[in-house]
Nucleic acid binder design. Structure first.
Length: 755
DNA sequence: CTTGGATGGATCA
DNA sequence: TTGATCCAT
């Protein structure tokens, strides 16, 4: 029963996660490649035009959608529905669909996204999760200090679940903030203390995140020409859920307090991971259909129908909690090439089998080769998969083989051997050319990549931080790490319709456990919001980087700065991280170190580093790269090393002056607003007060300029305006009633920057 | 028969 | 670790 509760708790609502999803990505790619298509209704189809009904549709743009074309239509039907529809076919190479241009475009996008945070995980060719927690915190701190203000245009194209327009939501947040300063009453007060701050800051953080995501989407558009939509919430699952609510080229955030309402009409199947058999089973077993209905069940009841892990996950998710971390991953962990041979296309003879093995193997060779140039790695393993039709039913098999050389014939031979060896009856006895059972699917999957640049050292570490990989400990343990009781008692706020269970029993227990277990987290306790801490963290990261560069083995600080390190299993052997001193399970140390590295690099450094990699790796002539690979890698290694050295040196030079004491040691801080000395633990609260004041000031100041802006939402609420501009600038000290009215009146320019 | 194929990730025994 | 299976885009 050893957890670090405080860390876990903070991760329930503290994180800000965005899911970026490209709008009808394949269509956008095709439009970019063939600009004549722009503005026209188009669909993208997988194969030749000889398919049933004119072929399927894998993507359609919004023009086509507006014309009534549906994804479920066949090509013919779509063409009938929309006669001037443009049919774009994905190219076919070696008899199979060639998706390389979409992969390439997706990689471009990911490269841009990655510059905003190291905590980016590609979820598919056109989707990526971003953990924006740090960026949001930084901006919130800036805002609080008056260095930054949201303007209306920052929230362009933004929607908030449960609100008609974003202005309505902003108004709500405004009222809440101003109210909180004057009024002791707070709708988060019945939460456990640990959650209250997170809860109160949720709305403003989501808004800030929306402004950041707008910037991200604008950058993606500028750098790649592609448009995307986004979902913004406190965890991946929710971000994903709301992403599709407003499309295209829009973004949707999910306020914490809207989750229950949102769940009421949300079919369970829509949740990622519940769209298949498992979700169906849950729905049937519990006889429910919507997410909100999950709330009725205890964890034990849920667990009757699934394993512990899933029951916890479901139980938490029903309460808006999903602890899965955004695991940084920039490149895929495997590459697969496959082809189906449905029905009469099933492979029935050895010659045909051989032919297709070669075709697909060529694909493998090309992809692996390309990957080697891009990522300087090579797979160690290849899995050969095939499906036979035996007695009219499909039987799938796969076998693993060492990947010793990226060679077409070698791959084919291995595959042929594998198929022969693992087929009880390979050939028909009377016909040595005919397969006994037809083959309906062939596939290769290479994985277990090995970095080609030698050999440990800082280079390797850097590379890993870019290429890698997974952070399994975070992903896996985060789910099981939520203690049942803590969850059960911390979610009452989501049950805004009452009926929540009493929570008192838990609190004491929680506190006890917290204290018992809180051996090494004292310094970072409850400060994760603080701008000062953020600075301290940054400073510490600088120091950490220096440590890595100068004496990697040296153990220094004993703080654990990263909010992603929120879980420490107790029973496995642990060792101290050489960077942060935190005790980490031995087998997870590499991952832990990677996380440090990912965090330590700022965007510029990362892009610079990547560009250098690209430069040194980019072949002069993209064609015929095969036989050069060996020698080229060697020469590159040298170049690259110097590049890295340069990079590191520069990094050192541009590092901020080392501060001998990090802000973590500071107990008090001078308020930048009023000059008062405030205990650091109270600083944020204190600054909140100033924020509210400022907002009020802005409100008044921009009142007149507001009238220039004339949008629908303003027109709508125009009648609510009044002319009480009489208050002085210090009116922030006035009563609730007054501030509320002001906020209502002037909501659209509330966040206007003053500069 | 028919949103099916290609692809990638994750889980579990 | 491997092989089968599930899930998602």
């Amino acid at each position: 029963m050893m957890w670090t509760p405080q860390k876990m708790i903070n991760n329930k609502y503290d994180r800000i996660i965005a899911l970026i999803d490209m709008d009808c990505f394949y269509c956008q790619v095709e439009e970019q490649l063939n600009p004549e298509l722009k503005g026209k209704p188009i669909i993208v189809q997988p194969l030749q035009y000889d398919d049933y009904g004119g072929g399927g549709i894998i993507a359609l743009n919004y023009v086509a959608k507006a014309r009534g074309v549906k994804r479920s239509m066949r090509g013919d039907e779509a063409k009938t529905q929309c006669p001037d529809l443009e049919l774009v076919r994905v190219p076919v190479i070696r008899g199979k669909a060639d998706l390389s241009k979409y992969r390439k475009a997706g990689k471009q996008v990911a490269t841009v996204l990655q510059t905003f945070t190291p905590l980016m995980a590609r979820a598919s060719v056109d989707e990526a999760y971003l953990d924006l927690t740090e960026r949001v915190q930084t901006r919130l701190a800036d805002m609080t200090k008056g260095k930054y203000a949201l303007s209306k245009s920052d929230l362009k194209c933004t929607f908030a679940v449960g609100y008609e327009c974003i202005d309505a939501y902003v108004q709500f947040v405004t009222n809440k903030v101003t109210k909180a300063t004057d009024d002791a009453e707070d709708d988060s007060e019945h939460l456990p203390e640990e959650d209250q701050e997170s809860f109160r800051k949720s709305d403003i953080k989501l808004l800030i995140a929306a402004s950041i995501v707008n910037e991200i989407r604008a950058e993606v558009k500028e750098q790649t020409g592609f448009e995307c939509s986004a979902g913004i919430a406190h965890n991946k699952t929710l971000a994903k859920l709301v992403c599709g609510l407003n499309k295209p080229n829009k973004q949707t955030l999910l306020p914490l307090k809207q989750i229950t309402d949102f769940y009421r009409t949300l079919p369970i199947k829509k949740v990622q991971g519940l769209g298949g058999k498992f979700g169906e089973k849950i729905c049937e077993d519990l006889n429910i259909q919507y997410m909100a209905e999950l709330l009725k069940f205890t964890r034990e009841e849920i667990q009757k129908h699934c394993d512990e892990r899933n029951s916890k996950w479901l139980y938490n998710l029903a309460r808006g909690i999903d602890m899965e971390a955004v695991t940084p991953r920039l490149v895929s962990k495997s590459i697969s090439c496959s082809k189906m041979f449905p029905r009469q296309n099933a492979i029935a003879d050895v010659q045909t089998l051989n032919h297709w093995l070669h075709e697909i193997a060529k694909d493998v060779v090309d992809r692996v080769d390309e990957d080697e140039f891009e990522n300087n790695r090579r797979p160690k393993q290849i899995v050969i998969s095939f499906t036979q039709s035996i007695n009219n039913s499909d039987v799938s098999s796969s076998r693993t083989v060492n990947f010793v050389a990226n060679n077409e014939n070698k791959i084919v031979n291995d595959a042929f051997e594998v198929i022969k060896r693992n087929t009880t009856k390979f050939l028909k006895p009377d016909d040595p050319n005919a397969l006994f059972n037809p083959i309906k699917y062939l596939g290769f999957n290479v994985s277990k990549f090995e970095s080609l640049d030698s050999k440990g050292g800082i280079e390797e570490l850097f590379r890993r931080s870019f290429q890698k990989k997974e952070n399994q400990s975070i992903t896996e343990t985060s789910n099981v790490s939520i203690e049942d009781d803590s969850v059960a008692n911390n979610i009452c706020i989501l049950n805004e319709n009452g009926n929540e269970e009493p929570q008192n029993s838990f609190l004491s227990k929680y506190n006890v456990e917290f204290k018992d277990d809180d051996t090494d987290t004292e310094n970072s306790e409850s400060d994760s919001e603080s701008g000062a801490l953020a600075e301290a963290t940054h400073q510490m990261n600088q120091n950490l980087l220096r440590n890595v560069l100068e004496s990697p083995r040296l153990s220094t600080s004993s703080t654990n700065p990263e909010y992603i390190d929120y879980y420490v299993p107790s029973e496995q052997p642990k060792v101290a991280c050489s960077k942060c001193g935190k005790m980490v399970v031995e087998t997870e140390m590499q991952v832990h170190s990677d996380a440090h590295l990912a965090f330590e690099l700022n965007e510029k450094q990362r892009t610079e580093f990547q560009n250098q990699l690209k430069r040194t790796h980019a072949p002069k002539t993209p064609i015929k790269k095969k036989q050069k690979s060996e020698t080229k890698i060697l020469s590159n290694k040298k170049k690259e090393k110097t590049s890295i050295e340069k990079f590191l040196v520069r990094k050192r030079e541009t590092s901020p002056e080392p501060s001998t004491s990090t802000a973590i040691d500071v107990e008090v801080e001078k308020c930048c607003e009023c000059g008062k000395t405030i205990p650091i633990t109270d600083l944020f609260e204190h600054l909140d007060f100033h924020t509210a004041k400022k907002l009020q000031d802005e409100l008044m100041k921009s009142e007149t300029t507001t009238n220039r802006m004339n949008n629908n939402s303003m027109k709508k609420s125009k009648n609510n305006y009044n002319n009480s501009l009489s208050s002085s600038k210090n009116k922030n000290n006035t009563k609730n009633k007054n501030t509320k009215n002001t906020a209502v009146r002037n909501i659209t320019t509330f966040f206007q920057s003053t500069e």
